[in-house]
Nucleic acid binder design. Structure first.
Length: 234
DNA sequence: TTCCCGCTAA
DNA sequence: TTAGCTGGAA
């Protein structure tokens, strides 16, 4: 006879994080979506620019902004040109990404940080991940999610990216999630093998899944995680 | 009207 | 803890 502990009842049968479950989720998503070509960008610098532009913004609008920038700069988006450009001009070019005045300032700040490494990604990659993370967080306009995105997709440093999608999916599946960005990040990093390829792909899968099935109003019918999910919907 | 791969300032 | 930042698509 199974006994339900009062502890379980009080916490609505929430799951504890464990490596096997996270591995299962990864496998299921991987089988469904296959390998995803993330992050979409021609250069590491463009990746970082995209990370700023997509803050609380639909990626489609970011693509337009990136295309505008590339057009104005006749080709590839170079950090030197971003620094040289007047703030207003930059702001107008990225208008479609929203918060354009703020983001223009943020792009300048990001680029000034990058200049420290001569705009050379291989130089930046020589620095330890934890150090780079502190540096990025000190840049105006770069918070934890943007920092970790840059670390994972441009600098090849393994930090688990936490975004709304990650929280939404894991919450619905039924995990007890700590409040606070770093608490959840550390929890996942302790339960998922810390290698860069896995972290790149895992985050990509979560985002894709949140857009296809685990949307604001979830489409559970043909969800690849249907069986292991408690459908813990508000 | 709501929702987008958030962050800062206060 | 939350107002403010902002355009574009659904």
């Amino acid at each position: 006879m199974l006994k339900t502990t009062t502890h379980n009842t009080m916490h609505n049968n929430l799951k504890a994080a464990d490596p096997t479950t996270f591995n299962d989720i990864f496998t299921q998503l991987q089988q469904h979506y296959g390998h995803l070509p993330w992050w979409p960008a021609d250069t590491e610098y463009e990746m970082m620019v995209g990370a700023i532009l997509t803050q609380n913004t639909n990626w489609k609008n970011v693509e337009k902004a990136l295309a505008n920038l590339a057009g104005h700069l006749t080709g590839k988006i170079a950090p030197q040109q971003i620094l040289a450009m007047p703030l207003d001009t930059l702001a107008q070019l990225i208008r479609s990404s929203g918060y354009y005045n703020q983001k223009a300032i943020k792009l300048k700040a990001l680029t000034l940080w990058y200049q420290k490494y001569d705009f050379d990604i291989s130089q930046a990659r020589c620095i330890e991940g934890a150090t780079l993370r502190i540096e990025l967080l000190a840049v105006n306009g770069i918070g934890p999610e943007t920092a970790d995105s840059i670390l994972v997709y441009a600098l090849d440093k393994p930090f688990f990216i936490i975004d709304n999608y990650t929280r939404r999916i894991l919450h619905r599946i039924g995990f007890e999630l700590p409040t606070g960005y770093d608490k959840l990040r550390l929890l996942l990093e302790q339960n998922i093998p810390r290698n860069i390829t896995t972290y790149q792909q895992y985050h990509a899968l979560l985002v894709e899944h949140a857009k296809r099935y685990c949307t604001k109003i979830p489409q559970c019918q043909h969800c690849p995680l249907y069986c292991c999910c408690q459908k813990n919907i508000e």
